[in-house]
Structures are given as C-alpha cells and as structure tokens.
C-alpha cells in the first residue's frame, strides 16, 4: 500500500464491564496487517485495561489482557498512556503490564512500548494523526 496513514486507536473504557476494550483490541490486531503507522492511546478508564494481574477465572469469561503483551510482535509499539488519567486513578507505571517490543533499527534491542505522556504531550500526538478510531 503506497499511502501510509497515521492511525490512532483511542481507548477510554475499562475492561470487562463492557466489551469495547476487547473488541477494540481485535481491530488493532487486524489493522496491524495493513502496514499503517499505528499508535494506541489510553486515557480515562482506558488505563485500567493495562493493569497487571487481571484474572477472570471466577467470572468465567476470557482474560484478554495477555494480548496486549503480544502487540509488540505485530509492530504495534507506540502505546501512549495519559499521565493525568493514571494519577486520577491512583496508578503509576509500575501498576501496568510491562509491554515490550524488539527494535529492529537498534539490533533488536528490547524496549518498552508504553510511554506515559502528559495531557499537553497527548494533545500534540493526537494532532499528528490522520485517522482516529474510537471505541
């Protein structure tokens, strides 16, 4: 495909209470095959999607949180988390799953996919996008 667009997936809802988080992730996985410039943003309750230690066994529904760790293998490695949303929920980066990717431009060094950014930085990132998908 000749024209690469900047695709941003915005995640603002908590997991499990509604299906939006999981079905959004399904779009990201399919979208990865289209070789566009993909970023994910997590803000508001969306930051809860990335929290460590999710266990749905007692609910009897699918725990999809391991899928986030696989995003690096799909070349989805720009994952922006808004600092203000984290702080408002009493969370820090340490509460989130350590998402990694291997940087092919840096001898496949393992790097962190999650970047905690301020609202001002997030605003700038949003400005640069071509297509915004919201769930």
């Amino acid at each position: 495909m000749s024209d690469v667009k900047k695709f941003m997936y915005i995640n603002r809802k908590a997991p499990y209470g509604t299906i939006y988080a999981w079905e959004a992730l399904e779009v990201v996985l399919i979208g990865a095959a289209f070789e566009q410039d993909v970023s994910l943003a997590f803000m508001d309750d969306g930051v809860f999607q990335l929290v460590k230690g999710q266990d749905t066994t007692e609910l009897g529904i699918k725990n999809f949180s391991p899928t986030y760790s696989a995003l690096g293998d799909y070349d989805v490695n720009k994952i922006y988390v808004e600092k203000e949303s984290l702080e408002a929920r009493g969370l820090t980066l340490d509460d989130l799953m350590p998402l990694k990717y291997e940087d092919e431009d840096d001898d496949w060094a393992e790097k962190d996919s999650i970047r905690v950014v301020t609202a001002a930085e997030m605003a700038e990132i949003l400005e640069q996008q071509d297509v915004v998908l919201s769930f």
Binding site: M1, D3, F7, V27, I30, G31, F34, Q36, L133, S134
Partner: peptide
C-alpha cells in the same frame, strides 16, 4: 465482512466519523 473493511475505510476515505 471482516474488520479489514473498517481499516480499509480509514485508508481510503478523506474522513472517518465514529458514532457510538
């Protein structure tokens, strides 16, 4: 059809408008 149709719309269209 598949989710690829949504991504394709994002690529092909001048604007994508989401209602939800």
């Amino acid at each position: 059809s598949g989710l690829g149709q949504l991504i394709e719309a994002g690529i092909q269209c001048d604007r994508l408008v989401v209602f939800g």
